[in-house]
Amino acid sequence: MSAATAHHDEAHGHEPSYAQQTKSNRLGLWLFFFSELFLFGALFAARFALWGNTRPELSQVLGLIVTSILLVSGYFMYRAEVAIAHDDRKTFLSSLLAAAFLGIVFFVGVVILEWNVFGLELNAFGVEWFGRLKPRDGVYGGVFFAMTGMHALHVLSGVILILFVWNNGRKGHFSPEQHWGVEATALYWHYVDVIWVFFYPALYLIGHLA
């Protein structure tokens, strides 16, 4: 037996099993979430330090719409995970696309409408559809763009992950027994949702208008 094959056999015995690796992955992911809590927590604390009991003027309708869209997208992500666990590939793939699509709508809602990066104006149904707060508008601009920006970055990465999962799912990569990639992406997506559930009231609801 040559040294190379001996080496190969030896290496093989040291790879952890799928179940064992998934157990480690799950713990690692939750630790990562705990870690990120300090990132979002620091931003949250900055909001209260700088805004106190006040808030900037933002479009309430717009805030409510994007929040609802993100929550609905969370439902589709959940449906995708349940579907792959039951080997229902059709629902799995369509739910993933729905979740990603709604994620993109949320992202567009924040960046194009609320941030108004193109400087547009539209008043329809009695609602201002494009935000007026600018990054340089003192601490209100600073905190608002920092919190929504950091969250949007997570949404964007979540959408990209969902699309990768969809692409691999399309190629038949996951099974009811082995779909850690789906589970991890779903957890991440729910996590990003939950963060927004705290960010939304902090930005849009708490305090009186400055």
Partner: peptide
């Protein structure tokens, strides 16, 4: 994570003009 936030805030305050720390803008 928290030092990461403070460092990125300082970077953003310089580059994009987001105001957190400079008392001139209320920071």
């Amino acid at each position: 994570q928290t030092v990461g936030v403070s460092l990125t805030m300082a970077v953003a305050e310089r580059v994009i003009g987001l105001n957190f720390f400079d008392p001139v803008g209320g920071g």
